[in-house]
Design a protein around this nucleic acid. Structure first.
Lengths: 217, 217
DNA sequence: GCGCAGATTCAACAAGCGTTGAAGACTAGT
DNA sequence: ACTAGTCTTCAACGCTTGTTGAATCTGCGC
Protein backbone atom coordinates (compact mmCIF):
# COMPACT_ATOMS: atom_id res chain seq x y z
CA UNK A 1 0.00 0.00 0.00
CA UNK A 2 1.01 3.58 -0.39
CA UNK A 3 -0.03 5.03 2.94
CA UNK A 4 3.47 5.19 4.38
CA UNK A 5 5.16 6.29 1.19
CA UNK A 6 2.53 8.91 0.47
CA UNK A 7 3.35 10.81 3.61
CA UNK A 8 7.07 10.44 3.04
CA UNK A 9 6.72 11.64 -0.52
CA UNK A 10 4.88 14.69 0.71
CA UNK A 11 7.43 15.36 3.43
CA UNK A 12 10.06 15.39 0.70
CA UNK A 13 7.98 17.76 -1.40
CA UNK A 14 7.42 20.08 1.56
CA UNK A 15 11.10 20.20 2.41
CA UNK A 16 12.05 20.78 -1.21
CA UNK A 17 9.46 23.51 -1.55
CA UNK A 18 10.82 25.42 1.40
CA UNK A 19 14.47 25.12 0.43
CA UNK A 20 13.95 25.82 -3.27
CA UNK A 21 11.93 28.90 -2.36
CA UNK A 22 14.64 30.28 -0.14
CA UNK A 23 17.78 29.44 -2.10
CA UNK A 24 16.79 28.56 -5.66
CA UNK A 25 17.15 25.34 -7.62
CA UNK A 26 20.91 25.12 -7.93
CA UNK A 27 21.84 26.30 -4.47
CA UNK A 28 19.88 23.48 -2.86
CA UNK A 29 21.30 19.98 -2.48
CA UNK A 30 19.33 16.78 -2.70
CA UNK A 31 21.05 15.79 0.53
CA UNK A 32 19.86 19.00 2.24
CA UNK A 33 16.31 18.29 1.15
CA UNK A 34 16.35 14.72 2.38
CA UNK A 35 17.94 15.70 5.67
CA UNK A 36 15.17 18.25 6.25
CA UNK A 37 12.59 15.62 5.24
CA UNK A 38 14.21 13.14 7.60
CA UNK A 39 14.74 10.45 5.00
CA UNK A 40 17.60 8.77 3.19
CA UNK A 41 19.14 10.40 0.12
CA UNK A 42 18.33 7.49 -2.14
CA UNK A 43 14.63 7.81 -1.39
CA UNK A 44 14.55 10.96 -3.46
CA UNK A 45 15.36 8.83 -6.49
CA UNK A 46 12.83 6.19 -5.58
CA UNK A 47 10.00 8.70 -5.51
CA UNK A 48 11.24 11.03 -8.25
CA UNK A 49 13.24 10.61 -11.41
CA UNK A 50 15.78 13.34 -10.76
CA UNK A 51 16.37 16.55 -8.85
CA UNK A 52 14.81 18.44 -11.73
CA UNK A 53 11.75 16.18 -11.69
CA UNK A 54 11.38 16.82 -7.96
CA UNK A 55 11.51 20.54 -8.65
CA UNK A 56 8.87 20.31 -11.37
CA UNK A 57 6.62 18.25 -9.12
CA UNK A 58 6.89 20.87 -6.40
CA UNK A 59 5.79 23.52 -8.87
CA UNK A 60 2.92 21.48 -10.30
CA UNK A 61 1.53 20.31 -6.98
CA UNK A 62 -0.20 23.54 -6.04
CA UNK A 63 -0.59 25.12 -9.46
CA UNK A 64 -3.98 23.62 -10.17
CA UNK A 65 -5.49 24.53 -6.81
CA UNK A 66 -4.18 28.04 -7.25
CA UNK A 67 -5.62 28.47 -10.73
CA UNK A 68 -8.96 26.98 -9.70
CA UNK A 69 -9.36 29.51 -6.93
CA UNK A 70 -8.67 32.38 -9.28
CA UNK A 71 -11.02 31.03 -11.93
CA UNK A 72 -13.71 30.74 -9.26
CA UNK A 73 -13.12 34.32 -8.17
CA UNK A 74 -13.50 35.49 -11.77
CA UNK A 75 -16.67 33.39 -12.12
CA UNK A 76 -18.06 35.13 -9.08
CA UNK A 77 -17.30 38.58 -10.49
CA UNK A 78 -19.02 37.71 -13.77
CA UNK A 79 -22.01 36.33 -11.90
CA UNK A 80 -22.35 39.60 -10.04
CA UNK A 81 -22.39 41.51 -13.34
CA UNK A 82 -24.53 39.63 -15.88
CA UNK A 83 -25.27 42.77 -17.90
CA UNK A 84 -23.02 45.66 -16.93
CA UNK A 85 -19.24 45.54 -16.88
CA UNK A 86 -17.53 45.07 -13.50
CA UNK A 87 -15.07 47.67 -12.31
CA UNK A 88 -11.42 47.18 -13.14
CA UNK A 89 -10.57 46.99 -9.48
CA UNK A 90 -13.05 44.15 -9.00
CA UNK A 91 -11.39 42.16 -11.77
CA UNK A 92 -7.90 42.79 -10.45
CA UNK A 93 -8.96 41.83 -6.95
CA UNK A 94 -10.30 38.53 -8.30
CA UNK A 95 -6.86 37.91 -9.72
CA UNK A 96 -4.78 38.90 -6.70
CA UNK A 97 -6.86 38.35 -3.59
CA UNK A 98 -7.24 34.55 -3.81
CA UNK A 99 -3.47 34.32 -3.47
CA UNK A 100 -3.38 36.79 -0.62
CA UNK A 101 -6.16 34.89 1.13
CA UNK A 102 -4.19 31.67 0.71
CA UNK A 103 -1.43 33.08 2.86
CA UNK A 104 -3.73 33.70 5.78
CA UNK A 105 -5.04 30.15 6.00
CA UNK A 106 -2.55 27.34 5.35
CA UNK A 107 0.10 29.95 5.81
CA UNK A 108 3.48 28.23 5.79
CA UNK A 109 3.17 25.93 2.79
CA UNK A 110 1.61 28.51 0.49
CA UNK A 111 4.01 31.13 1.68
CA UNK A 112 6.94 29.01 0.53
CA UNK A 113 5.21 28.07 -2.70
CA UNK A 114 4.40 31.63 -3.69
CA UNK A 115 7.91 32.77 -2.84
CA UNK A 116 9.14 30.05 -5.17
CA UNK A 117 6.81 31.17 -7.93
CA UNK A 118 8.04 34.71 -7.46
CA UNK A 119 11.63 33.64 -7.91
CA UNK A 120 10.86 31.50 -10.94
CA UNK A 121 8.89 34.33 -12.51
CA UNK A 122 11.83 36.70 -12.65
CA UNK A 123 14.44 34.17 -13.66
CA UNK A 124 15.40 34.34 -17.34
CA UNK A 125 16.00 30.61 -17.36
CA UNK A 126 12.59 29.51 -16.10
CA UNK A 127 10.43 32.63 -16.18
CA UNK A 128 9.42 32.68 -19.82
CA UNK A 129 8.47 29.10 -20.44
CA UNK A 130 7.32 27.77 -17.07
CA UNK A 131 5.04 30.70 -16.28
CA UNK A 132 3.53 30.49 -19.75
CA UNK A 133 2.80 26.79 -19.31
CA UNK A 134 1.23 27.23 -15.89
CA UNK A 135 -0.72 30.42 -16.10
CA UNK A 136 -1.48 31.33 -19.69
CA UNK A 137 -5.13 30.21 -19.88
CA UNK A 138 -6.01 32.02 -16.67
CA UNK A 139 -4.13 35.16 -17.62
CA UNK A 140 -5.76 35.25 -21.04
CA UNK A 141 -9.20 34.99 -19.48
CA UNK A 142 -8.29 37.72 -17.03
CA UNK A 143 -7.09 40.05 -19.77
CA UNK A 144 -10.23 39.33 -21.77
CA UNK A 145 -12.33 40.43 -18.82
CA UNK A 146 -10.47 43.72 -18.65
CA UNK A 147 -10.71 44.18 -22.41
CA UNK A 148 -14.46 43.86 -22.10
CA UNK A 149 -14.48 46.50 -19.35
CA UNK A 150 -12.31 48.90 -21.39
CA UNK A 151 -13.47 48.29 -24.95
CA UNK A 152 -11.15 50.80 -26.63
CA UNK A 153 -7.99 49.46 -25.00
CA UNK A 154 -5.17 48.37 -27.31
CA UNK A 155 -3.74 44.89 -26.90
CA UNK A 156 -0.24 46.23 -26.33
CA UNK A 157 -1.39 48.45 -23.47
CA UNK A 158 -3.27 45.53 -21.94
CA UNK A 159 -0.33 43.16 -22.11
CA UNK A 160 2.12 45.68 -20.68
CA UNK A 161 -0.29 46.59 -17.91
CA UNK A 162 -0.58 42.94 -17.01
CA UNK A 163 3.19 42.69 -17.04
CA UNK A 164 3.47 45.49 -14.48
CA UNK A 165 0.79 43.86 -12.36
CA UNK A 166 2.67 40.59 -12.51
CA UNK A 167 5.86 42.26 -11.35
CA UNK A 168 4.23 44.04 -8.44
CA UNK A 169 2.42 40.90 -7.36
CA UNK A 170 5.36 38.53 -7.52
CA UNK A 171 7.80 40.83 -5.75
CA UNK A 172 5.24 41.02 -2.99
CA UNK A 173 5.17 37.23 -2.66
CA UNK A 174 8.92 36.98 -2.65
CA UNK A 175 8.90 38.43 0.88
CA UNK A 176 12.50 39.52 0.69
CA UNK A 177 12.23 41.81 3.67
CA UNK A 178 13.16 44.74 1.47
CA UNK A 179 10.18 46.89 2.41
CA UNK A 180 10.74 46.09 6.09
CA UNK A 181 14.26 47.50 5.86
CA UNK A 182 13.27 50.46 3.73
CA UNK A 183 10.43 51.53 5.98
CA UNK A 184 12.42 50.84 9.18
CA UNK A 185 9.83 48.30 10.24
CA UNK A 186 6.75 50.39 9.54
CA UNK A 187 5.65 48.02 6.76
CA UNK A 188 6.02 44.24 6.88
CA UNK A 189 6.44 42.01 3.81
CA UNK A 190 4.12 39.45 5.33
CA UNK A 191 1.26 41.82 6.14
CA UNK A 192 -1.27 40.49 3.65
CA UNK A 193 -4.24 42.63 4.73
CA UNK A 194 -2.17 45.74 4.09
CA UNK A 195 -1.37 44.44 0.63
CA UNK A 196 -4.85 43.38 -0.44
CA UNK A 197 -6.10 46.79 0.66
CA UNK A 198 -3.59 48.50 -1.62
CA UNK A 199 -2.41 46.39 -4.54
CA UNK A 200 -5.74 46.11 -6.42
CA UNK A 201 -6.38 49.84 -6.14
CA UNK A 202 -2.86 50.71 -7.25
CA UNK A 203 -2.93 48.37 -10.23
CA UNK A 204 -6.49 49.24 -11.27
CA UNK A 205 -5.53 52.90 -11.46
CA UNK A 206 -2.58 51.96 -13.66
CA UNK A 207 -4.75 49.90 -16.02
CA UNK A 208 -7.33 52.64 -16.27
CA UNK A 209 -4.90 55.40 -17.09
CA UNK A 210 -2.85 53.36 -19.53
CA UNK A 211 -5.66 51.59 -21.34
CA UNK A 212 -8.29 54.31 -21.53
CA UNK A 213 -6.30 57.43 -22.40
CA UNK A 214 -6.51 58.32 -26.05
CA UNK A 215 -3.11 58.15 -27.74
CA UNK A 216 -1.59 60.71 -30.07
CA UNK A 217 0.38 59.85 -33.20
CA UNK B 1 51.95 47.74 -14.57
CA UNK B 2 48.28 46.93 -14.62
CA UNK B 3 47.38 47.61 -18.22
CA UNK B 4 47.23 44.01 -19.29
CA UNK B 5 45.58 42.72 -16.14
CA UNK B 6 43.03 45.50 -16.16
CA UNK B 7 41.51 44.31 -19.39
CA UNK B 8 41.65 40.68 -18.29
CA UNK B 9 40.00 41.55 -15.01
CA UNK B 10 37.24 43.31 -16.90
CA UNK B 11 36.78 40.44 -19.31
CA UNK B 12 36.28 38.21 -16.28
CA UNK B 13 33.77 40.64 -14.81
CA UNK B 14 31.89 40.86 -18.10
CA UNK B 15 31.70 37.10 -18.46
CA UNK B 16 30.61 36.68 -14.85
CA UNK B 17 27.99 39.39 -15.23
CA UNK B 18 26.41 37.70 -18.21
CA UNK B 19 26.40 34.21 -16.72
CA UNK B 20 25.26 35.26 -13.25
CA UNK B 21 22.42 37.25 -14.83
CA UNK B 22 21.19 34.29 -16.83
CA UNK B 23 21.62 31.43 -14.36
CA UNK B 24 22.08 32.89 -10.88
CA UNK B 25 25.00 32.68 -8.49
CA UNK B 26 24.99 28.99 -7.64
CA UNK B 27 24.23 27.64 -11.09
CA UNK B 28 27.33 29.25 -12.54
CA UNK B 29 30.76 27.67 -12.26
CA UNK B 30 34.01 29.56 -11.90
CA UNK B 31 35.32 27.37 -14.71
CA UNK B 32 32.42 28.42 -16.96
CA UNK B 33 33.16 32.06 -16.28
CA UNK B 34 36.86 31.73 -17.02
CA UNK B 35 36.22 29.72 -20.15
CA UNK B 36 33.92 32.47 -21.42
CA UNK B 37 36.51 35.08 -20.44
CA UNK B 38 39.21 33.08 -22.23
CA UNK B 39 41.51 32.82 -19.23
CA UNK B 40 42.82 30.20 -16.85
CA UNK B 41 40.72 29.16 -13.86
CA UNK B 42 43.35 30.18 -11.36
CA UNK B 43 43.30 33.75 -12.62
CA UNK B 44 39.93 34.21 -11.02
CA UNK B 45 41.62 33.76 -7.66
CA UNK B 46 44.48 36.06 -8.54
CA UNK B 47 42.13 38.92 -9.31
CA UNK B 48 39.40 38.13 -6.77
CA UNK B 49 39.33 36.56 -3.35
CA UNK B 50 36.58 34.05 -4.01
CA UNK B 51 33.60 33.31 -6.21
CA UNK B 52 31.45 35.32 -3.86
CA UNK B 53 33.86 38.26 -3.99
CA UNK B 54 33.70 38.14 -7.79
CA UNK B 55 29.91 38.24 -7.59
CA UNK B 56 29.94 41.22 -5.24
CA UNK B 57 32.38 43.06 -7.48
CA UNK B 58 30.11 42.52 -10.46
CA UNK B 59 27.23 44.03 -8.52
CA UNK B 60 29.20 47.01 -7.22
CA UNK B 61 30.87 47.88 -10.51
CA UNK B 62 27.88 49.58 -12.09
CA UNK B 63 25.89 50.50 -9.00
CA UNK B 64 27.43 53.91 -8.54
CA UNK B 65 27.06 54.96 -12.19
CA UNK B 66 23.46 53.84 -12.06
CA UNK B 67 22.64 55.78 -8.91
CA UNK B 68 24.43 58.89 -10.15
CA UNK B 69 22.31 58.96 -13.28
CA UNK B 70 19.12 58.72 -11.28
CA UNK B 71 20.22 61.38 -8.81
CA UNK B 72 21.02 63.66 -11.76
CA UNK B 73 17.58 63.03 -13.25
CA UNK B 74 15.95 63.97 -9.95
CA UNK B 75 18.16 67.07 -9.72
CA UNK B 76 16.90 68.08 -13.14
CA UNK B 77 13.26 67.65 -12.13
CA UNK B 78 13.76 69.76 -9.02
CA UNK B 79 15.55 72.42 -11.08
CA UNK B 80 12.57 72.60 -13.40
CA UNK B 81 10.24 73.18 -10.44
CA UNK B 82 11.87 75.57 -7.96
CA UNK B 83 8.53 76.71 -6.54
CA UNK B 84 5.68 74.43 -7.59
CA UNK B 85 5.62 70.69 -7.13
CA UNK B 86 6.45 68.51 -10.13
CA UNK B 87 3.90 65.99 -11.33
CA UNK B 88 4.08 62.46 -9.96
CA UNK B 89 4.73 61.10 -13.42
CA UNK B 90 7.73 63.40 -13.82
CA UNK B 91 9.24 62.10 -10.59
CA UNK B 92 8.61 58.46 -11.50
CA UNK B 93 10.09 59.00 -14.94
CA UNK B 94 13.24 60.41 -13.34
CA UNK B 95 13.50 57.18 -11.39
CA UNK B 96 12.82 54.73 -14.21
CA UNK B 97 13.89 56.33 -17.47
CA UNK B 98 17.63 56.61 -16.76
CA UNK B 99 17.72 52.82 -16.55
CA UNK B 100 15.65 52.40 -19.69
CA UNK B 101 17.91 54.84 -21.52
CA UNK B 102 20.95 52.87 -20.39
CA UNK B 103 19.69 49.87 -22.33
CA UNK B 104 19.58 51.75 -25.60
CA UNK B 105 23.20 52.93 -25.48
CA UNK B 106 25.77 50.47 -24.14
CA UNK B 107 23.13 47.85 -24.62
CA UNK B 108 24.63 44.45 -23.87
CA UNK B 109 26.50 45.09 -20.63
CA UNK B 110 23.74 47.04 -18.96
CA UNK B 111 21.17 44.60 -20.18
CA UNK B 112 22.95 41.79 -18.36
CA UNK B 113 23.56 43.91 -15.29
CA UNK B 114 19.95 44.99 -14.91
CA UNK B 115 18.74 41.43 -15.41
CA UNK B 116 21.06 40.44 -12.60
CA UNK B 117 19.71 43.18 -10.35
CA UNK B 118 16.20 42.01 -11.13
CA UNK B 119 17.02 38.49 -10.06
CA UNK B 120 18.77 39.62 -6.90
CA UNK B 121 15.86 41.88 -6.02
CA UNK B 122 13.32 39.07 -5.82
CA UNK B 123 15.57 36.55 -4.13
CA UNK B 124 14.85 36.12 -0.41
CA UNK B 125 18.52 35.41 0.22
CA UNK B 126 19.96 38.55 -1.35
CA UNK B 127 16.98 40.83 -1.98
CA UNK B 128 16.47 42.32 1.44
CA UNK B 129 19.98 43.25 2.43
CA UNK B 130 21.82 43.87 -0.86
CA UNK B 131 19.14 46.11 -2.34
CA UNK B 132 18.95 48.08 0.88
CA UNK B 133 22.72 48.63 0.88
CA UNK B 134 22.83 49.71 -2.76
CA UNK B 135 19.72 51.78 -3.27
CA UNK B 136 18.35 53.05 0.03
CA UNK B 137 19.64 56.66 -0.12
CA UNK B 138 18.33 57.13 -3.65
CA UNK B 139 14.99 55.51 -2.90
CA UNK B 140 14.53 57.62 0.23
CA UNK B 141 15.18 60.79 -1.73
CA UNK B 142 12.75 59.63 -4.39
CA UNK B 143 10.02 58.91 -1.87
CA UNK B 144 10.62 62.28 -0.23
CA UNK B 145 10.04 63.97 -3.57
CA UNK B 146 6.70 62.22 -3.93
CA UNK B 147 5.76 63.00 -0.36
CA UNK B 148 6.29 66.67 -1.12
CA UNK B 149 4.07 66.38 -4.19
CA UNK B 150 1.30 64.60 -2.22
CA UNK B 151 1.49 66.22 1.20
CA UNK B 152 -1.33 64.24 2.82
CA UNK B 153 0.04 60.83 1.82
CA UNK B 154 0.67 58.33 4.61
CA UNK B 155 4.09 56.74 4.88
CA UNK B 156 2.67 53.25 4.61
CA UNK B 157 0.92 54.05 1.34
CA UNK B 158 4.10 55.61 -0.01
CA UNK B 159 6.28 52.63 0.89
CA UNK B 160 3.85 50.09 -0.52
CA UNK B 161 3.45 52.11 -3.70
CA UNK B 162 7.20 52.16 -4.11
CA UNK B 163 7.25 48.43 -3.53
CA UNK B 164 4.80 47.88 -6.39
CA UNK B 165 6.85 50.17 -8.61
CA UNK B 166 9.97 48.24 -7.74
CA UNK B 167 8.32 44.96 -8.68
CA UNK B 168 7.02 46.22 -12.01
CA UNK B 169 10.37 47.78 -12.87
CA UNK B 170 12.55 44.80 -11.98
CA UNK B 171 10.39 42.22 -13.71
CA UNK B 172 10.70 44.37 -16.79
CA UNK B 173 14.49 44.27 -16.59
CA UNK B 174 14.55 40.54 -16.08
CA UNK B 175 13.59 40.11 -19.73
CA UNK B 176 12.32 36.61 -19.20
CA UNK B 177 10.46 36.54 -22.50
CA UNK B 178 7.22 36.03 -20.62
CA UNK B 179 5.36 38.90 -22.26
CA UNK B 180 6.63 37.81 -25.67
CA UNK B 181 5.02 34.39 -25.17
CA UNK B 182 1.87 35.76 -23.63
CA UNK B 183 1.25 38.29 -26.38
CA UNK B 184 2.25 35.85 -29.14
CA UNK B 185 5.06 38.17 -30.19
CA UNK B 186 3.05 41.39 -30.21
CA UNK B 187 5.07 42.80 -27.30
CA UNK B 188 8.82 42.32 -26.83
CA UNK B 189 10.58 42.25 -23.45
CA UNK B 190 13.45 44.24 -24.89
CA UNK B 191 11.36 47.04 -26.40
CA UNK B 192 12.45 49.84 -24.11
CA UNK B 193 10.65 52.71 -25.87
CA UNK B 194 7.37 50.84 -25.40
CA UNK B 195 8.15 50.50 -21.73
CA UNK B 196 9.23 54.06 -21.00
CA UNK B 197 6.07 55.24 -22.73
CA UNK B 198 3.93 53.14 -20.39
CA UNK B 199 5.57 52.33 -17.07
CA UNK B 200 5.77 55.88 -15.63
CA UNK B 201 2.14 56.59 -16.53
CA UNK B 202 0.96 53.29 -15.08
CA UNK B 203 2.87 53.70 -11.84
CA UNK B 204 2.05 57.39 -11.43
CA UNK B 205 -1.65 56.58 -11.63
CA UNK B 206 -1.17 53.97 -8.92
CA UNK B 207 0.66 56.37 -6.62
CA UNK B 208 -1.94 59.06 -7.11
CA UNK B 209 -4.91 56.84 -6.37
CA UNK B 210 -3.33 55.10 -3.41
CA UNK B 211 -1.68 58.07 -1.75
CA UNK B 212 -4.27 60.78 -2.32
CA UNK B 213 -7.55 59.00 -1.59
CA UNK B 214 -8.91 59.78 1.83
CA UNK B 215 -9.12 56.70 4.00
CA UNK B 216 -12.01 55.59 6.17
CA UNK B 217 -11.64 54.11 9.64
C1' DG C 1 4.60 -19.24 7.65
C1' DC C 2 5.57 -17.87 2.87
C1' DG C 3 5.94 -14.90 -0.62
C1' DC C 4 5.60 -10.69 -2.77
C1' DA C 5 5.55 -5.86 -3.67
C1' DG C 6 6.33 -1.51 -1.97
C1' DA C 7 9.37 1.24 0.93
C1' DT C 8 13.71 2.16 2.87
C1' DT C 9 18.76 1.81 3.84
C1' DC C 10 23.78 1.50 2.83
C1' DA C 11 27.76 2.19 0.40
C1' DA C 12 29.66 3.64 -3.44
C1' DC C 13 30.42 5.63 -8.35
C1' DA C 14 32.32 9.20 -11.59
C1' DA C 15 32.23 13.87 -12.32
C1' DG C 16 32.55 18.28 -11.07
C1' DC C 17 33.15 21.80 -7.54
C1' DG C 18 35.90 25.94 -5.25
C1' DT C 19 40.34 26.72 -4.24
C1' DT C 20 45.60 26.68 -3.87
C1' DG C 21 50.87 26.47 -4.39
C1' DA C 22 54.61 26.49 -7.12
C1' DA C 23 56.60 27.37 -11.25
C1' DG C 24 56.92 29.96 -15.71
C1' DA C 25 56.40 34.31 -18.74
C1' DC C 26 56.24 38.99 -19.44
C1' DT C 27 57.44 43.85 -18.80
C1' DA C 28 59.48 47.41 -16.58
C1' DG C 29 63.68 50.10 -14.58
C1' DT C 30 68.68 49.95 -13.96
C1' DA D 1 71.94 41.36 -18.69
C1' DC D 2 69.89 41.27 -14.14
C1' DT D 3 66.27 41.94 -11.05
C1' DA D 4 61.72 42.89 -9.28
C1' DG D 5 57.08 42.75 -9.67
C1' DT D 6 52.99 41.79 -12.09
C1' DC D 7 50.54 38.47 -14.62
C1' DT D 8 49.60 33.81 -16.22
C1' DT D 9 49.78 28.69 -16.49
C1' DC D 10 49.66 23.84 -14.81
C1' DA D 11 48.48 20.34 -11.98
C1' DA D 12 46.50 19.04 -8.23
C1' DC D 13 44.00 18.97 -3.31
C1' DG D 14 39.97 17.58 -0.68
C1' DC D 15 35.24 17.71 -0.81
C1' DT D 16 30.52 17.65 -2.55
C1' DT D 17 27.51 16.77 -6.15
C1' DG D 18 23.64 13.92 -8.55
C1' DT D 19 22.77 9.39 -9.12
C1' DT D 20 22.66 4.15 -8.77
C1' DG D 21 22.52 -1.14 -7.58
C1' DA D 22 22.08 -4.29 -4.36
C1' DA D 23 20.61 -5.50 0.04
C1' DT D 24 17.27 -4.99 3.77
C1' DC D 25 12.99 -4.01 5.98
C1' DT D 26 7.81 -3.80 6.33
C1' DG D 27 3.14 -5.17 6.01
C1' DC D 28 -0.42 -7.66 3.55
C1' DG D 29 -2.87 -11.81 0.99
C1' DC D 30 -2.82 -16.65 1.04
Amino acid sequence: MSSKSQTTKQRILDAAEELFARDGFSAVTVRQIMKKAGADVALAYYHFESKRDLFDTVLMRRAEVMNDMRHAALDEVERRHPDDAPSIEEIIAAFTNPLLALLDNDHEHWRHYLALIAQVNSSPEWGGELMTRFFDPLVRRFIDAIRRAIPDASDEDLYWSYHFLSGALTLTFAETGRIDNLSSGLCRSSDMPSISARLPAFVAAGFERLCTKQRQA
